[in-house]
Design a protein around this nucleic acid. Sequence first.
DNA 1: ACCCACTTGTAGCGAGTGCTACATGTCGCT
DNA 2: AGCGACATGTAGCACTCGCTACAAGTGGGT
Lengths: 179, 179
Amino acid sequence: MPPARLSRETLLPLLAAHVMEHGLADASLRPLAKAAGTSDRMLIYHFGNKDAVVEALLDYLGGMFAAALDTAFPQERAASRRACAETVYDITARPEFAPFFRVWWDIVAGCADSNEAYLAAAGGMMDLLLDWVVAHLPEDDPDPTAGARVVMTAIEGAQMLRAVGRGDIGQAGLAALEG
Amino acid sequence: MPPARLSRETLLPLLAAHVMEHGLADASLRPLAKAAGTSDRMLIYHFGNKDAVVEALLDYLGGMFAAALDTAFPQERAASRRACAETVYDITARPEFAPFFRVWWDIVAGCADSNEAYLAAAGGMMDLLLDWVVAHLPEDDPDPTAGARVVMTAIEGAQMLRAVGRGDIGQAGLAALEG
DNA sequence: ACCCACTTGTAGCGAGTGCTACATGTCGCT
DNA sequence: AGCGACATGTAGCACTCGCTACAAGTGGGT
């Protein structure tokens, strides 16, 4: 087949794959382009500038996260708040999630600089996960909205502690969830 | 007074101040040196290479964190686990802590690349905070060791959610802590 | 067949990166 | 006074960065 015309749509999956492997923070145009089989010249041409590349990438990664929620996570409800939190924690502890977390923490670091694109991407992912948790709490949960916030807070804390090598603290925190 | 001889010790406070203001992730030798009133040449001379500069900086920042725990945080015990968590959360929400969090999330992102120096620094800070929490739980807490882990997990989750603009979720998570 | 807009390649710019070679300065010691 | 170790300044290297100027190719519409 003839080499398909380049476009944001054909480029983004390849760019995202490179970012998942090497991180978002120090991704630069030339390696990014090489991963997509093009030149930095064309990335600028199709996106305008590097910021736009990153912005499109953040959006695309948000889509990947949504897809991961649909496929990698169980569809049935959890038996308890604690079970729900531990399910998310255990699934995201699997090695195939490591690349995702590398870019996730880059995104959080970007948020700390008040970068709008990063804040939008990160906030969106958290809202997505919050909705998933609400929908997967036990049916008899007395207050799913509040419960999901409790579960989310514990999950995210545990994931951060895991990232810095203190997973034991976070796991103890999850285990103490009532319900 | 004559300009004191340069050394790691005289340099580090100035370097740390620059890092607190501009972040650790994209700190480079020349701006760093300028902030300390020297040249990149001298940073390499006194530290060996850039990695050693960063390593020393991480260590120094750990010391700053320990000092902050002693001065900015109350000395008396909290009335409950929840109060303990909310105290930490509220204090670290103050604007003067924003620079610290910018570098904190850079450190966490560095941990996600399995960087030993970052892992040591971040883990050390978490251990420090964990000890502080243990010591500031109510005296009648049934299990301070376990309680501190619960509190820590919630605090860190809430701080991360705050960083990405979802502080409401984290605060709801903290408010639900029993005790 | 011709034109013209869209797409791509080549080459390069100016700035910044970590780091080094080399010369010079400064200070204590004998 | 003079030596030698440590400290510092100047200049530069080879490289990467985001981005651009310019030219060439491609393909559809008339």
